[in-house]
Structures are given as C-alpha cells and as structure tokens.
Design a protein around this nucleic acid. Structure first.
Length: 567
RNA sequence: CGGGGCGUGGCUCAGUUUGGUAGAGCACCUGCCUUGGGAGCAGGGGGUCGCAGGUUCAAAUCCUGCCGCUCCGACCA
C-alpha cells in the first residue's frame, strides 16, 4: 500500500474528548472516527487489525471444533419474552418497532436466538456436542459509554455457544474454550489473567473473565501470590472470620447523638471498629434489602443481589428506608422493621457483643449477639474482599490489580434450554434439556486493550501478529529520484514475498513520515536515505526497542521475518 | 439517574463578562525553497458560531426551551 493512497488521516492533536491512551491514539493515528456516542467507524488500519484478531479467534475456535455461523442482529421480542429477559435486560437493550409495530431489539447477545435455532434442529444425543460461534456487532445501550472502544454501545464480539448432553460434556467444552481463550490472548500479545467471575445478567453459574492487565481497566481483580487463586473482586469469596470466644452480655440501647457514621459511633462509644456492624440499604425487585457487615468491611452489592435472589439492586433512598421502619445512619439488626430482607455477612454471625444501629435517630445498641438478638433472612458471604484479607484458598498474601475484561466464559447449564424447551433424546429415548455454555470475546476491545498495554509517547507499538502492516518503507527525501527508486524496489520486493508493507511515498519531510510511522506503530521501519542509498543494505528500525539493524542485499526477507517473529 | 464542564472552519482553542461586519495556530490548495525526526516565505479556499424561538436598529455575545458531547458519582450511612 502506498501511504499517499491510504485512508489513514493522522492528526497532530487528538480531539479533547479522548481520555484514555487507546482512544487518543486510535483517533490520532487515523484508525477510528466517532459516529455517535460510543459508536465508531473503523478506518482501514483499524479494520486490518480487527480482521487479524478475528482470524486468530477463528483459528482457535475452529481448532476446538467450533463452527462459524451468522445470526441476525435484529431479534424479535418474543424469544426474549419467552426467556424472561425482555424485562430483565432493561434499558441496556436497544429496542425498536417495525412498521407493524412489532417489537424487536438489536442483539446484545444471542443465547435466545441460538437456543431457539438449535432446538429446531437437534433431536438426538448423536448430534452433540455442538459448538456454534459468530463474530459480529453487538449492541448494548450502556449507561455511560466511555474510553473509546473500551466501552462502546456498538462493538465487535465473538460469541460461541456450546451444547452438550450432560454436565461432563459442559465441563469438557468449558475447558476447551478456556484453553482456546488463553491461546488467543497470548497470540494477540496481551498480558492477561483469567479470574473467577460473577455471571451477571447472562446467568448460569461458573464463570471466568479474562482480564487484560491495565491501569485504565474498569474492573478490579485480586490474585494470590502463593496459589492460583485469582478473582474479580465482585466475585472473590471470603471465609468467615472465626469466632472469638467471649461471654455474651445483655443488649442495651444507648444514646449516640450525631453519630450517623461507623467512625463517629465507635469514637463516641470508645469501641474498636471491629466490634461494630454497619448496614447498607438497597431497594430491589423484592423490596428493601438491608445488608450488614462488620464496621471496617465493605458490602459487595453483587453478592447481596445473588444472596437475596433479586434481579435488580440499587441504593435505597432515605424515605424508602424510613418507610421500612429504620433510620439512615442508625440502621440495625434488632426486630421491629417491616417488609425488609436482612442479609447478614457470615463473619457478623461470629461476632460477640457488637454495636449496631437501633433503627431510631440518635440511638445504637451495644452488646448485640447473633442467635439471641436477631434473625437474619439470609446469612452469607456478602462483603468485598480487601487486599489485607488472606487468600480464601491457601491463606497466602493477595495482590490487587486493574483489568480490562476482554473475554468471559460461562456455564449456563440448562437455564435457557429449559425456558425455551430445547431438548434432545438420550440413548434411552428420554427427553433431556441441552446443557449449555457461552463464551464471549470483545474483539474491538482487544484491539484497544493491546494499545493500553503497548504504546509510548510517540504512538502505538503493535505486536507483529496483529499489526495493520508489518513494515513501513520511508524514503527520506521524496525529491531524490534514486532514493525513491530504491524505496520502490524494496517495497515491491517485500510485498511480493508476502510481507505487508506500506510505502510512504508522500512528498513530506522525513520528520513527518517518521512521526507518522511511530504513531501508527508498524513493528518495523525501513529507512531509505543518502546513507543507505549508496550501499545496497537495508536499514531497519525496530519500533518497540528503537534499535536499528542492517540487512545486507539478498538477505532482507530472512532478516525481516526473523525480526517479526521476535515481536 | 444526579452533579460539573463544554458546543465558534477538519483539529486545538481565543472571542461571550461590557451586543456593533468572525479570529489564531495546526491541517488543506498553489508557487518558491528545503529535505535523516512534525522547516521557511508568499498567495489562497473553507465557518447556518449545536438547534429553535425571543429581546434589540443590531446577537457567537443577553433571555427561554431543546439537542449533542464530555467528566465525576452511582462508595456505602
């Protein structure tokens, strides 16, 4: 490709809207342009990168027996109503009506479609396992699209669905995908880590997220330095903190004026914060939910939602809490409230003689004890893991990190097949629901995540495997006919042997072309100038290291392939 | 959803307080000159000042409503 013909409009200043590195560089280097909030047009360079990522994904999916299909983006409402998710998905779903006023949505994911599809065609255990996947645009009307391609409303996703006859089959399919994902992200040059994850709106149980490690990531993970435990903090389980034996005392209601925070209460009563219990009030589809954890702990809303069996959960307003018979700042565990669900952290159940609110403005109880003074509706692990906690598996030291979720794998079991009556017949002629899994990769997000991990002040640094082009040939002086001729020859030679090359044939000064090459991030740059024109050797600059190497005439191809293989 | 900021040529922004014929840098076009890290000179093209109303002799500027973008928050009683 000749740069003069390439639609890669580089700019000196990135638009002010770009906050994170990947967004800034994708705009500056002429890879993407914004069409609407969270919706982007991919220009030729970005599209080449995306196609390479897709190709890696295809190869690894096919290697595991996956078969590529293409399902519709526009999906009828009925199948979503049948699965119960038309309501659950909420505002995140783009909805539309056709001319007959029938409801549709733009596919945010395809469990309903694929399950309905397979239901119609799979009758027998002989047809299983079945792994179907596609790569296409997905649509999610995010509350707050941001960070360019990292959180868009339209994005490219690979989604594979596995259909097995039983749990053992699902485990095997899940393992295949887990392994394939590890290979895919490694081939894309990402530093990543698989972590245990919550399964969220997709449902099912058993899930891992693949996190590209980056400080701009929105997800937080913890991992153990001693064993292989690694989890999203939303998911990370915790063991209950052991009981400390202590004589129980009688509860007592005490005045605590102006002490609406745990800190204030503990200071006022001169009690260590570990002997207090605090509450967070939520509203859910099941009414008001109060979650209780030790004063120095934090509530994990995802765990509360799962424990309470709720579909939605958000912070309750003060009026809602008062209507439930409690008082913001003084919420407690003792009986007397109405229509509330009490969810208590299992560590609280091991505490003795603790302080908690009295559900009345200005009062707390001291010497509260589980079993005697209150009865929770649910007791479970509902707190957020902290870096100071011991590893829940081995007791080792934990480390926190931030990550970009580039992929997630789920065991769906029979959640969708039962709702949509997708069954097969086993050897005994007995009808059984298909056992399903689903597995997603954010292809466009992978591209952005790679940039988050691999760039410098000058621009992007592409790993060779997904670089839009491998080599940029830059003649220093466009007016020098000899240099241009040599550059043409090099370009033709490399292109002829399948090395993807851009010839920067623009009549620009050298600095401009060098800067653009760095910005776009070709792994290698071949410079053709007065120095190199004389002797027939190739001057190659490595983008990642800045190192310059020379290849004598006749050995170009080998040298370039050798260098690319190392990148 | 709540709160802040912004909307002026392709990009970055000034001009708005105090109304009076729309500006700069970069980018773009032509020519000269230059050519190993975003040169220089000269000439030139390009803007419904987000949209719709209103006030006024006169509105980018004041008023009202809408739209869009963006950042923060959704932190814990």
């Amino acid at each position: 490709m000749r740069f003069s013909q390439l639609y890669a409009p580089t700019v000196r200043e990135a638009p002010a809207e770009a906050e994170v590195v990947s967004h800034q560089l994708l705009l500056k280097a002429g890879f993407v342009r914004k069409t609407a909030g969270g919706i982007y047009t991919y220009l030729p360079l970005a599209w080449r990168v995306l196609r390479k990522i897709e190709q890696i994904v295809r190869e690894e999916m096919d290697a595991k027996g996956g078969q590529e299909i293409a399902m519709p983006i526009v999906q009828p409402a009925e199948i979503w109503q049948e699965s119960g998710r038309w309501e659950v998905y909420g505002d995140e779903m783009f909805r539309l009506r056709d001319r007959h006023s029938r409801s549709f949505c733009l596919g945010p994911t395809h469990e309903e479609i694929v399950t309905t599809l397979v239901k119609g065609d799979v009758r027998s255990y002989r047809q299983l396992p079945l792994l179907l996947y596609q790569i296409q645009n997905k649509y999610r009307d995010e509350i707050r699209p941001r960070f360019g391609l990292l959180r868009g409303r339209e994005f490219i996703m690979k989604d594979l669905y596995s259909f097995d006859r039983d749990q053992a089959g699902l485990e095997a399919s899940y393992r295949k995908m887990y392994d394939a994902y590890s290979r895919i992200f490694a081939r894309c040059g990402l530093k990543f880590r698989p972590v245990e994850a919550d399964s969220g709106a997709i449902g099912g149980s058993g899930s891992h997220e693949f996190m590209a490690l980056a400080n701009s990531g929105e997800a937080e993970i913890v991992y153990c330095e001693s064993c292989d435990f690694a989890a999203n903090i939303e998911k990370a389980e915790l063991n209950p903190i052991a009981a400390r034996e202590e004589e129980t005392c009688a509860p007592e209601k005490v005045s605590t004026p102006n002490a609406a925070t745990i800190k204030a209460v503990c200071a006022y009563l001169a009690v260590p914060v570990e002997k207090s219990v605090k509450a967070v009030g939520y509203k859910s589809d099941k009414g008001v939910v109060l979650a209780f954890v030790r004063g120095d702990h934090e509530v994990n809303a995802v765990k509360v939602l799962n424990t309470a069996g709720a579909l939605t959960l958000s912070m309750a307003g003060e009026d809602e809490l008062r209507a439930a018979g409690t008082e913001p700042g003084y919420m407690g565990l003792l009986p007397g409230k109405k229509n509330v669900t009490l969810v208590v952290d299992h560590s609280v159940m091991n505490m003795r003689n603790f302080v908690c609110g009295a559900d009345v403005l200005g009062y707390h109880y001291v010497n509260v004890n589980p079993g005697r003074d209150f009865t929770p509706d649910f007791t479970a692990d509902i707190r957020m893991i902290q870096e100071t906690d011991p590893c829940p598996r081995c007791g080792g030291r934990l480390t926190k990190a931030k990550g970009i979720e580039v992929g997630q794998v789920f065991k769906l079991h029979t959640k969708y097949s039962e709702k949509l009556a997708a069954n097969y017949l086993d050897e005994n002629g007995k009808e059984r629901p298909l056992v399903m899994g689903c597995y997603g990769i954010g292809v466009s997000r992978v591209m952005a995540a790679v940039i988050e991990q691999s760039s410098d002040d000058a621009g992007i640094i592409w790993p060779a495997a997904i670089a839009p082009y491998h080599v940029a040939v830059v003649p220093v002086n466009a007016k020098n006919a000899e240099q241009m001729k040599i550059a043409e020859e090099i370009y033709e030679t490399l292109t002829a042997v399948g090395i993807e090359t851009v010839l920067d044939d623009r009549a620009e000064r050298a600095g401009v072309k060098f800067n653009d090459a760095d910005l776009i991030g070709y792994p290698l740059r071949v410079t053709v100038g007065a120095k190199t024109a004389a002797n027939r050797e190739l001057e190659i600059k490595i983008r990642a290291s800045g190192e310059v190497v020379f290849a004598p005439d006749g050995s170009w191809q080998e040298k370039i392939r050798e260098l690319l293989a190392a990148l």
